[in-house]
Design a protein around this nucleic acid. Structure first.
Lengths: 226, 226
DNA sequence: GTCTATACTGCGATAGAC
DNA sequence: GTCTATCGCAGTATAGAC
């Protein structure tokens, strides 16, 4: 039987408007020109059919080049995945460590801004986000560890924001770890279904989920720790 | 360079306590004996390293059989994936359509029960849940459509429960689609990180998320529709 | 830096003995 | 129903011309 009789090929993914995202704007500080195009092509393919189902030919074909072209810019397919995951996590982390967060008036405004920006980033870059969330098992041990370090930093931003609000009395005495898990889940799971051509803009869904996050830590809520 | 220099092999997944789940109890009505063992082995491998990175040899080796053994019970690797996805979705749907849900006293109790059971099911069967959520792109077009049908039914249970509460005045006038997305995200994303040997039992995390879900539709919440 | 051509490997699936 | 052996092919990566 044929090796690949799956629903979609990588080329279908490139043509699918559901996978349109704004990853091309992500590589600027690290890559430009052909290399940036290869990363964007790989994001679309990886997000659509997965790292292991994507061939190096698919990635090159996405920018109109021959099968061998990818290796001039990246030493291996795994390195393409790592660069996507590394840059994606770095950008998301930077986006929730912005001055706008530092200047928040109080713990509530601070948490609201962090959640809204985290969610909006993942909506705008949802294809890159899918790769960052669901394809990490294909990384080498060293690269996986490097990404895990960045993920710990992102979790730390949320944990600090919630803990600070609990300590200064802005929030109820919630179970910080549980609540942070829930907030991250809202922001992360949307990469599975979000589309830029859907009803909500990235900023709108960010605001909506920021409200949900605040309701999770609100005083008088049913969700205080036991 | 080697084809697979990834972090983990399928055998590592079989040995990893993080992927312990209770999928062996899922196949009873459809498969028994060796076939059930193959499905459970496949769940562990697919959940750990993905459908495309798992070989038919891995699946068979998980139950101590030779590479060819799988084909006596399943016509193809893709069919193994489909059976896991089909049965997983059927069981999850049945679990939130239980008599316990039908007998709920009011809209609030009804939604609480649905969310708690949905979340608890995904926690208990989190490895199967990962396959059901993240590996569907490897299905054939026909099999994908069959699973999509089941997913629509599951979404419908949530949508009806929220809509009913809005209509009878138990809930605030929320944006039903948005709120249902959020509830499903909480229940689905946990398959990415949940472990049975962690601090929360499936039922405990189900109760916790049911509280969150109710706070999303509570009257007087900040999250009413515009 | 891009191409064509290809070496090498590993996987899905099958054949045929027991 | 399980085994061993193997076929055929797809996919990563490289060689070498331009």
């Amino acid at each position: 039987m044929a090796r690949r009789q799956t629903r979609f090929s990588a080329q279908d993914m490139v043509d699918d408007p559901r996978l349109k995202d704004e990853s091309p704007s992500l590589w600027g500080d690290d890559y430009g020109g052909v290399a940036a195009g290869l990363l964007s092509s790989a994001v679309t393919c990886f997000a659509g059919i997965g790292f292991n189902a994507t061939t190096t030919r698919d990635i090159s074909a996405g920018v109109g080049l021959s099968p061998a072209a990818m290796y001039v810019h990246f030493a291996s397919k795994e390195l393409v995945l790592f660069e996507i995951a590394r840059i994606g996590h770095e950008r998301a982390l930077a986006f929730i460590e912005s001055p706008e967060v530092e200047q928040a008036a109080d713990s509530t405004a601070r948490l609201r801004t962090i959640v809204a920006r985290f969610v909006a980033w993942h909506a705008r870059h949802h294809a890159c986000g899918r790769v960052c969330q669901y394809e990490l098992s294909a990384l080498s041990a060293e690269h996986y560890e490097a990404v895990t370090e960045l993920r710990r930093a992102i979790n730390g931003v949320f944990r600090d924001a919630v803990r600070r609000g609990v300590q200064d009395g802005s929030f109820a005495d919630v179970d910080v770890d549980r609540v942070v898990r829930g907030m991250l889940s809202l922001g992360i799971d949307l990469v599975r279904w979000y589309r830029l051509d859907g009803p909500d803009s990235p900023e709108q869904i960010g605001e909506f989920y920021a409200d949900l996050a605040l309701s999770m830590v609100a005083r008088g809520s049913a969700v205080t720790s036991a």
